[in-house]
């Protein structure tokens, strides 16, 4: 049971800064969908905080801005908004794809993008997607009454399992990311149950093809390593190369050593490789260019290497 005496809901950053300076013993929450199940038997048990500060209604954390090159989302954006918002669906195809795998419709209404990133779970779904979008984290650093904005790359921000570069009072305000409206995207995930799954392996891929060559590709993984990360070797190998079964297969082998999970290593390796290949193929499927013969690539992959059709 989560117990507390006061539940504060600041409406502005200023109010928030004042609040956390004046009250002690508080815990910050946003959607609460992680905190509530955490305060139960078998996990944290009964937990008491004198004060809770709910940041989900802070005005400065609730925004969406769409520019030609850049898109910004407030930290309090809910996963259901990410799933359903028209502009996000068009410009950031990878985000709705992670959302559909995120818990269920009801939890998505409450859970926030910022909360998911701040928890820095090795299994967090949104981190690999944001990595692929070259996302930057905007942090509000509280210095007395002042709020100083600071920008970190996601890599600088996520420091380890459940560890982020955030001072006690600091707050994630939002995220700036690339507008990838001309990219195709695919998210692959395996977990234990359809709804509420904690991923054991997930891969986020965004790519752009021109003249049958990979013009750009960004692949990120999580669940299998302490910190979600980009597969830079795979990306480097593919950029500028022909879209062919041989290249895709060779790339898929390059970075399987990122896996440092303690359990079921071989299984995860197999899944990771399949996911890399599949996420590329599925992204390519959405490519409308006519001279790409995807069936030919798939046939050859099937023949020579792996099972890619499901």
């Amino acid at each position: 049971m989560l117990k507390y005496d006061n539940y504060y809901i600041p409406k502005t950053l200023k109010e928030y800064a004042k609040m956390c300076n004046s009250i002690g013993n508080y815990r910050i929450v946003a959607g609460c969908t992680d905190t509530m199940p955490w305060a139960r038997e078998g996990r944290a048990g009964d937990v008491y905080f004198k004060n809770i500060i709910d940041v989900s209604k802070i005005k400065e954390l609730n925004y969406m801005k769409f520019a030609k090159k850049n898109i910004s989302l407030g930290a309090a954006t809910s996963f259901q908004d990410i799933f359903l918002d028209k502009k996000i669906r068009k410009n950031l195809k990878i985000l709705p794809q992670i959302s559909v795998w995120f818990a269920d419709d009801q939890i998505r209404e409450q859970a926030t993008l910022g909360g998911n990133i701040v928890n820095a779970s090795p299994a967090a779904d949104s981190t690999p997607a944001l990595l692929s979008l070259n996302a930057k984290v905007i942090i509000g650093v509280i210095k007395g009454d002042k709020i100083i904005k600071k920008t970190l790359t996601l890599k600088e921000f996520v420091r380890g399992r459940n560890k982020v570069a955030l001072g006690k009072k600091d707050l994630v305000i939002g995220f700036d990311m690339d507008n990838l409206n001309d990219y195709q995207a695919c998210f692959e995930k395996v977990g234990h149950r359809r709804s509420l799954v904690i991923s054991t392996v997930c891969v986020a891929c965004v790519l752009k093809v021109k003249n049958n060559k990979f013009e750009d590709i960004r692949i990120s993984v999580s669940g299998v390593c302490e910190i979600p990360q980009r597969l830079l070797k795979v990306e480097k190998f593919l950029i500028g190369k022909q879209v062919s079964h041989k290249n895709i297969f060779e790339a898929s082998l390059l970075e399987l050593n990122v896996i440092n999970s303690r359990t079921r290593k071989d299984y995860r390796k197999q899944v990771l490789q399949n996911f890399i290949v599949r996420s590329i193929l599925k992204s390519l499927e959405k490519n409308t260019s006519k001279n790409l013969n995807l069936n030919f690539i798939k046939d050859n992959l099937e023949k020579e290497y792996l099972h890619v059709r499901n």
Binding site: Y7, V29, C32, M36, D54, Q106, E109, L196
Partner: peptide, 24 residues
């Protein structure tokens, strides 16, 4: 938050009331 026996509408959106502090 696992079972949905507690589902209710808040401002027209269905949520799980076991994950929702009433203050919110």
């Amino acid at each position: 938050g696992e079972c949905g026996t507690c589902s209710v509408f808040v401002n027209g959106k269905l949520i799980k009331s076991c994950l929702m502090p009433v203050a919110k």
